[in-house]
Design a protein around this nucleic acid. Structure first.
Length: 582
DNA sequence: GCCGTTTTCGGCCCGACTGTTTTCAGTCG
């Protein structure tokens, strides 16, 4: 699947066009197309083979031809041509915060700077401040931008950023005269990785709020500070933007700063067609400039003729269109979950006892909890031998006799290199719930690794496929699975695919979850807890599901225990019927 | 370069902050 490579090439063309100071709309066109392709679940090779590249939104004849050329030859002549005209190091300069195409070009033309190293050297030798449009401050800012780039290049996983943002918001509520403080930006949309934190506050005394924000102990450095907004860096190198607005415009501001950019552009364009103007200050009559509202987000959407749209959907992936048609999906919520289907205890590599896990589940109000310690072959994770598993079952039975929550006897079995499971059928038969997972050989070629997962899906005892790709966010690429085949088999057999809520995994991701549900696949949202406190991570899995337009009825662990058991029995019925047919 | 319940051509969201300037360009989100 070459989708990410194609997207990278289009983004590269956009960068080069920007450095040549081509039309910003042309530049944006390439970036928009790249974004669309990043979000596809289907391999772009398959779309190209059908001759349907132009059916992808924002891909027209010109970009389609370049994609086709790349897939056929591995090169794009237009890109090679551009690359010859623009020194390669200039692209790297655009990564420096605060340095855009105009000044990057100027630095190249006037000082011959074409790499980050040369930029740093020139700034340190004070050769930049005398250029027209630059000054002492610009020179220092460039050095600071370089440091920031080198120290903190990647994006932060959602879980870490969320924790920092919630702490900062709470500190600000205590330290400043604010009515409200909310997390906005991609964090409010629960994107899986976060570039920076956006906070929005409402207050009658914005300057006091900005001042208090700049003084928070978590703040290491203030990058910019005005009357109503500030940008700071935390001790951990994370950038945080605060914006302060009066209460009557809070809704419009929250809507605006939540994004996404693409969602807002379309919303504003639609508003304009209705004779309205939408900004972070409210909704206005375009002709008279009279303000029509904006105290709440509901008001903003309503004035544009739309119902309120949940932040997780605001990616311009069709949500505005279904909102207009009155067919927004009903999304799953944390409260819908009745239990957790993947957890580990001290018996394998977890850190809590069966009893402690049960208590934690009861504290969350769950009806049931599956204990799914690793099977024997996963030695690194302390997998259980058959004898240990029988001893564990006795312990689970004992806890079940006194606990309010119902513990299910489960197992996380390994999918071996040949697609078989590492655990005997009779042991699987003793379990209430069988989860199968890939932990090794995930870098196998697409066909091979897909065949293994398909075999597990078709195994008569398997109920759930855990973390299907086994990716680790920003650390390990997941398996290159043929998801169309996986979804078809999962739908046919009634096997659930997991959305693993553990913040390092989030696997399935939002895009695949949406496609799976569209094809009738059932999902399970599990925390994969290795500690009683991990059960609370469920909200990250719910966020992925919501971003994937997943309704509660598509998720098996929203069901009451009796209905969950009925679903568990269905798979065995499917297997029996299949045997009969064969 | 893309796109169309205004348009197949002429648009393409809109405002804050910084640092340099004496009214604004560049950058960012």
């Amino acid at each position: 699947m070459k989708n990410q490579q194609v997207a990278a090439i289009l983004n590269q063309i956009a960068d080069l066009l920007e450095l040549r100071q081509e039309s910003p709309y042309r530049v944006a066109a390439y970036r928009e197309a790249a974004r669309q392709i990043e979000g596809l679940t289907e391999p772009i090779e398959a779309i190209d083979a059908r001759g349907e590249l132009e059916s992808i939104p924002r891909v027209g004849a010109s970009i389609a031809a370049k994609i086709h050329e790349f897939l056929a030859t591995g090169r794009v002549a237009a890109l090679d041509q551009l690359a010859r005209e623009v020194p390669s190091g200039l692209l790297a300069l655009l990564q420096v915060p605060g340095l855009g195409p105009k000044r990057a070009i100027q630095l190249y033309r006037e000082l011959g700077i074409a790499s980050i190293a040369e930029l740093r050297e020139a700034a340190e030798q004070h050769r930049i401040h005398s250029l027209r449009g630059f000054g002492e401050k610009s020179e220092q800012n460039l050095l600071r931008g370089i440091r920031q780039l080198l120290q903190f290049t990647g994006r932060l996983p959602l879980g870490e950023a969320r924790a920092v943002a919630e702490r900062l918001a709470a500190s600000l509520r205590r330290a400043a005269p604010v009515e409200r403080v909310e997390i906005a930006g991609s964090l409010r949309r629960w994107r899986e990785t976060i570039g920076d934190i956006d906070l929005l506050a409402s207050s009658r005394a914005p300057e006091e709020v900005v001042a208090a924000f700049a003084r928070l102990p978590e703040v290491a450095q203030v990058l910019a500070r005005g009357e109503t907004k500030a940008t700071v860096v935390t001790e951990t190198g994370l950038q945080v933007d605060l914006r302060v607005v009066p209460p009557e415009t809070f809704g419009a501001a929250l809507q605006y700063f939540t994004g996404s950019k693409a969602h807002n552009i379309k919303l504003r364009t639609w508003a304009e067609q209705r004779g309205l103007k939408v900004s972070e200050y409210g909704v206005f009559d375009a002709r008279t400039d009279r303000r029509l509202g904006g105290a709440t987000e509901e008001e903003v959407y309503s004035l544009v003729g739309l119902p309120w749209i949940p932040p997780e959907l605001r990616e311009d992936e069709g949500e505005l269109e279904v909102a207009r048609d009155g067919t927004l999906p009903r999304l799953i919520e944390l409260d819908h979950l009745r239990g957790d289907l993947q957890t580990h205890t001290r018996w394998s590599d977890g850190h809590g006892s069966v009893e402690e896990m049960a208590r934690a589940a009861e504290a969350l109000g769950y009806d049931y909890l599956a204990i799914t310690d690793h099977s024997e072959s996963l030695g690194v994770a302390g997998g259980l031998s058959p004898a240990e598993r029988r001893a564990q079952r006795a312990e689970i039975d004992a806890v079940n006799r006194r606990a309010r929550v119902r513990l299910l006897v489960g197992i996380e079995a390994e999918i071996r290199a040949d697609g078989s499971l590492d655990t005997d059928d009779d042991l699987l038969a003793e379990c209430d719930l069988v989860i199968a997972a890939l932990h090794s050989g995930i870098q196998q070629p697409r066909d091979q690794v897909t065949r293994r997962v398909l075999a597990a899906i078709r195994h008569p005892r398997v109920h759930v496929i855990a973390h299907p790709t086994n990716r680790l966010l920003q650390r390990r690429q997941g398996a290159d699975l043929d998801f169309e085949a996986i979804f078809a088999a999962a739908a046919e057999t009634g096997t659930a695919l997991e959305i693993n809520a553990y913040p390092d995994r989030l696997d399935l991701d939002d895009v695949h979850a949406r496609r799976a549900v569209a094809l009738g696949v059932r999902l399970a949202i599990d925390t994969d807890s290795h500690h009683p406190s991990h059960l609370a991570l469920m909200r990250y899995g719910v966020a992925v599901a919501r971003r994937g337009w997943v309704p509660p009825e598509a998720v098996v662990n929203t069901r009451p225990l009796a209905e969950l058991r009925a679903w568990l029995a269905e798979k065995r019925r499917w297997a029996r019927e299949r045997r009969k047919a064969a």
